[in-house]
Simulated scan of single mutants.
Amino acid sequence: MRLWNKSTRLQAEFSFNKDSNPEIRSLAADPNGVWLAAVDSERSLRVWDISADRSAVKNLDQALGLRRATDGKILLAVASSRLIVSDSKNSLQVWDLVAKSKLEKIDISGQPDSISVSSDAAWAATTYGTESVGLHKIDQPAAEVTLRCAGPVTSTAFSPTGSYLAAVTSKGTLEVFATDSGTRCAFMRVDGSLSCSAWLPRSSAIAVGGLRGLYLFEYQDEKLSSSTAATSERRAATAAPE
């Protein structure tokens, strides 16, 4: 596994085991540029402090109790020294990477297809291959909010401030929700299905990709800074819900 520095054009290589080269099955990078976490095909979990270019946490898979069976997908999300892990159980485990201790266990609706976390680690979102998104306030694990979308959700992304959650669907819709209320604030539709999304750091721009290519939307809100990023297609996503 390799990490590239865009500014210096240098790369660092990370290895689970010098004697083997296992397949990487799940990967998560801290939006603050400090932590990198990965799970290999042997279901071993490693976390690196990439700001110091060293392996900071080892053998965390044993502490997490990850199964050694071949079934069950392990999902990761990391931000602000918080690691969120989901295996084949109906729960999320939240770990403090600095203290190397477990903080919370969050019950969820089922086995998730994906998880995402806000940059301040205040919020987490889970998708299940359905029209629902589970929105979780991490310090209040019992308070799950279900967000309903216009189609099966394929990807979610939090805004840089954590104030909003963007969700894209296989029906070609992009929807933006306020995290504090669960209210849908914006709705856009494109031709063809959408499969991935990313909210650009320090920006109001949301990048989404799918069957017809890449789109860049700008969500105009006073809580977010304006974006001047160039793209092949730009549209404003400020419409009221459909």
Rank of each mutant, 00 (worst) to 15 (best):
K18I: 09
S232A: 07
G151L: 07
V176S: 05
G151M: 09
S80N: 15
R202N: 15
S80T: 00
L214I: 09
D139I: 03
A143E: 12
M188D: 10
C185Q: 13
E218M: 04
D53R: 12
Y215G: 00
L10M: 07
Q220T: 06
F16E: 00
R148I: 15
D53K: 08
D180R: 10
S41W: 06
A12E: 13
E23W: 05
D87K: 08
D96Y: 10
C196D: 14
A37R: 01
N59V: 02
S91F: 07
D139R: 12
V133R: 05
W95E: 06
L83H: 05
S91M: 10
E23R: 11
L97S: 09
S232R: 10
E42P: 00
L135V: 01
T146P: 01
S155N: 08
G209E: 07
S55E: 14
A207R: 02
K102D: 01
A79L: 02
A237R: 05
D61L: 03
N59P: 00
A29N: 06
L216E: 07
S88A: 09
E23M: 05
K73A: 08
G65W: 06
L10K: 15
A29G: 14
V190F: 07
G129P: 08
I84N: 02
A79M: 02
V117Q: 11
L66K: 06
